[in-house]
Structures are given as C-alpha cells and as structure tokens.
C-alpha cells in the first residue's frame, strides 16, 4: 500500500491537485465572479501568455530582466551569506559584530528599504539587485551559521581523535553536516528573493515581471496581470525543482528514504 502510494500515484496526485485548482479557478472566474475586469479564466491567461510569448514576443524582455535581477541578487547572497555564516559560527567576535545588524535588517520589512536604496543607488540594476540581496541573504546567512553550530559534537571529537587537519575537519565533516541546513536556507531565500524582484520592479522600473504586473494593475489589464503573476509562480516552482535536484545529488544518503 505504502509502496504503491510512493510510486507513480504521487505524481498523479500532484497533477490532479493542479488540475482541480485550475478547474476551480475557471469556475470561479466564469460563473461566480463573471466579470473579466476582476478575474479571468486560466484559459484566458494561457491564451494571453501564448500571444505574448509566440506572437508579439513582448514577455521576453520582462522575463529576462526579472531573471537577471533575481539571479544576481540570489548568487550574491550565497557568496556573501554562506561564508559569513560560517565565520559567525567559528568566531565569537564576528558573531557579536554581525548579530545586531542581522536581527535588525532581517526583521525590518524590506519594502521600507526599497525607496532608500533607490535614492542611494538610482533606478538602475544596482538598487534592484540590492533589494533582492537584502531579501535572500539573511535566511542563507542564518541557516549557514546554524548548520555549522549544530554539527554533532561527537563528530568533531571523532575528527580530533583521528587527528584530521582543520581543513579536513571542515571539508569532510562540518561542510557536509551543515549542507542540508544551507539548502533549506536557499529554499527560504527563493521565495523572499522573488518577492524582492517584485518590490524592486514596482519602484521605477521600465521592464521586468514586477513592472508588468504593476503596470497591468494600473491599466486594469487583468489578463496581462495574471500572466505576470503566473510567471512569478512558475519561476518559484522551477527554482524549487532545481534546488531539489541539487539536494538529491548532494545528499545521496537520503535519496533511499521515501520523501
């Protein structure tokens, strides 16, 4: 029974769930609301998306702009967040210096930073990447720090008992042990990063999905609005799937567990 459930039927359930959602959406849009100024059917969204992708091609610049901003901000937070989290775990001094900033910046709503960053960095790419960066870096930083801190003490004793070098301790024990935590930080950062893209592009952008959604909202272009929202959703799903693949590759000892 369990085995059966773990097999194809899990994929089937996922597809069924999505289909049910779409049918419900369609029903809501065409029967309950029945006003295309508020809500359009998924069919209308698909046909609009088709038009924007294959007929006019106007969606591409927005997709590229948003992906670019997201990737730069996200990668920058990994490059900064992971090593800084490790340093915090290893050095009480670094921890003391970073901690107050981390808690303040992490808990302040990022939307409050957006105008400030725009003021400082202008409406170019810099401010947008900075907004995404501010959204992503803290979950990555905190999880990298925490992952290092909670490594089983017995593993560290083992390394010392086997007289491993500090580098070997880091490479062979601390890093793999904290990897699952880092990956879950990356997952948290994904959603926050996409939110950051939307926020950044709401303020003085000329392209991007956030701009598209904002502009469509202002002009009451409901189909385009939903195309933008759906594109954000798809970017999130793609990101999640990529991270899942990475997790499967990086933690092979877990793949024999049912998910």
């Amino acid at each position: 029974m369990v085995k059966f459930y773990c097999g194809n039927s899990r994929a089937i359930n996922k597809v069924l769930s999505i289909l049910c959602g779409l049918v419900l959406w369609h029903y809501l849009a065409t029967v309950i609301v029945a006003d295309t100024a508020f809500l359009v059917s998924p069919l209308a969204v698909v046909s609009k998306a088709y038009e924007m992708l294959f007929l006019t091609g106007e969606l591409y610049p927005h997709l590229f702009a948003s992906s670019w901003v997201f990737l730069y901000g996200y990668l920058l937070s990994i490059v900064v967040g992971v090593p800084l989290g490790f340093l915090m775990a290893f050095s009480p001094a670094v921890r003391d210096y970073v901690h107050p900033w981390m808690t303040t910046l992490y808990t302040t709503p990022r939307i409050a930073f957006a105008p400030v960053l725009l003021l400082w960095l202008g409406i170019g790419a810099g401010s947008k990447v900075a907004i995404v960066f501010l959204g992503c870096v803290f979950p990555i930083l905190i999880n990298s720090y925490y992952g290092m801190r909670v490594v089983d003490r017995e593993f560290v004793e083992l390394a010392r008992s086997l007289r491993l070098t500090r580098l070997a301790l880091f490479r062979k024990i601390l890093l793999p042990a904290s990897l699952p935590f880092i990956l879950s930080g990356l997952r948290l950062a994904l959603g926050r990063g996409l939110t950051g893209v939307a926020i950044a592009e709401w303020f003085g952008a000329t392209a991007g999905l956030g701009y598209l959604v904002y502009f469509a909202g202002q002009t009451l272009n409901v189909p385009v609005l939903f195309v933008g929202v759906t594109a954000f959703g798809l970017m999130g799903i793609i990101g999640f799937e990529i991270l899942r693949k990475i997790e499967d590759l990086a933690t092979p000892w877990k793949t024999s567990h049912p998910r």
């Binding site: 017995e154 083992l158 086997l162 000892w253």
Partner: peptide, 22 residues
C-alpha cells in the same frame, strides 16, 4: 565511541576510510 559516531553521508567503507585519507 559510545554512540557509533558514523557520518551519515558516508558508506561503511568510506566511514572506515576517514582516518586513512590524507
């Protein structure tokens, strides 16, 4: 060790190899 202290990401062979590498 009292708890086996085996690294969960290493196979038996690689756990035994830990002290022999390098």
């Amino acid at each position: 060790f009292q708890g086996a202290a085996l690294l969960p990401w290493r196979t038996s062979l690689n756990n035994v190899l830990l002290g022999l590498e390098g």
